[in-house]
């Protein structure tokens, strides 16, 4: 059983050491990685994903339960404990959704009954994240950006069911983020979000701040920020409503902004 991942720190692009010696992520943690473009966020999750062992450009090492990850993670990829969803990640298959998920579920589980149950649970999960329901007979390549993201997350969470899930900037594709965080928190896993989204950052337990290729700080979400998270969500909801109106060809009026201000 995986209980912790430890990032033993390396160095930034200029060779100077990171701000913390090591960082321990515990099972159940929801963590954000924040920082400007080019600050090393994606490199950090790549280091985690492939269990850096001091030989990657950052010199970081990644430990599982305090020790070097067992070879079996590499030897038998089915035991690999990490699922990765990046901003480039997409489905290439053009199979119908049901058939695609069943193919994946079959290599992960034994019986056809499990496959059926996993399929149903995955779709239900995905459909709570997207406004436009996904049907089993839709083709994978027909799914919208939001549906694709929702299904990627649902598939990684339920069918892969890996103890660690890495999500690289998943917010840009119209999924219900608060709902996603709520659903994900019910599962005992380590979730790591690379994000620019204040909503996700504030709903995380802490955020790793990247600068110049290295970990510059670790900020725990404090009580004030937690209180503030609700306001941030409302602001964000308001923007979402405006975005939807634009999308549906409606006009925006000053009146809408007043309504949001009163909320």
């Amino acid at each position: 059983m995986i209980e912790t991942i430890t990032i033993v720190s390396g160095h930034g692009k200029d060779g100077t050491p990171e701000a913390v010696d090591q960082l321990e992520l515990r099972m159940g943690d929801v963590v954000s990685i924040v920082g400007p473009t080019g600050s090393g966020k994606t490199t950090l999750i790549n280091d985690i994903e492939l269990f850096a062992d001091g030989t990657t450009p950052t010199g970081r090492r990644v430990l599982i339960n305090g020790a070097a990850p067992p070879d079996e993670y590499r030897e038998n990829p089915a035991n690999h404990p990490i699922a990765l969803i990046t901003q480039h990640t997409t489905f290439l298959s053009d199979l119908p959704v049901g058939e695609f998920l069943a193919t994946h579920a079959r290599i992960r589980s034994k019986t056809e009954r499990d496959v059926e149950a996993l399929l149903e649970e995955t779709l239900e999960f995905a459909n709570q994240l997207t406004g436009e329901p996904i049907q089993t007979e839709m083709r994978m390549t027909e799914l919208s950006g939001g549906q694709t993201r929702a299904l990627l997350i649902a598939d990684a969470t339920i069918i892969c069911d890996t103890p660690i899930v890495l999500l690289d900037e998943v917010e840009n594709a119209g999924i219900h983020r608060t709902r996603a965080l709520e659903l994900l928190r019910r599962r005992r896993k380590i979730f790591i979000f690379v994000t620019h989204d204040p909503r996700i950052a504030l709903l995380s337990d802490y955020r790793i701040v990247m600068r110049g290729g290295k970990i510059a700080d670790v900020l725990y979400t404090d009580a004030a920020e937690r209180a503030y998270a609700h306001e941030v969500s409302k602001l964000d909801d308001a923007l979402c409503i405006l975005r939807d109106k634009i999308r549906h060809g409606e006009r925006l009026t000053g009146h809408l902004l007043e309504v949001f201000a009163c909320n």
Binding site: N46, L84, T89, T90, F91
Partner: peptide
Amino acid sequence: IDRVSQAE
């Protein structure tokens, strides 16, 4: 490997 879904 970062380009495709975990499933694929």
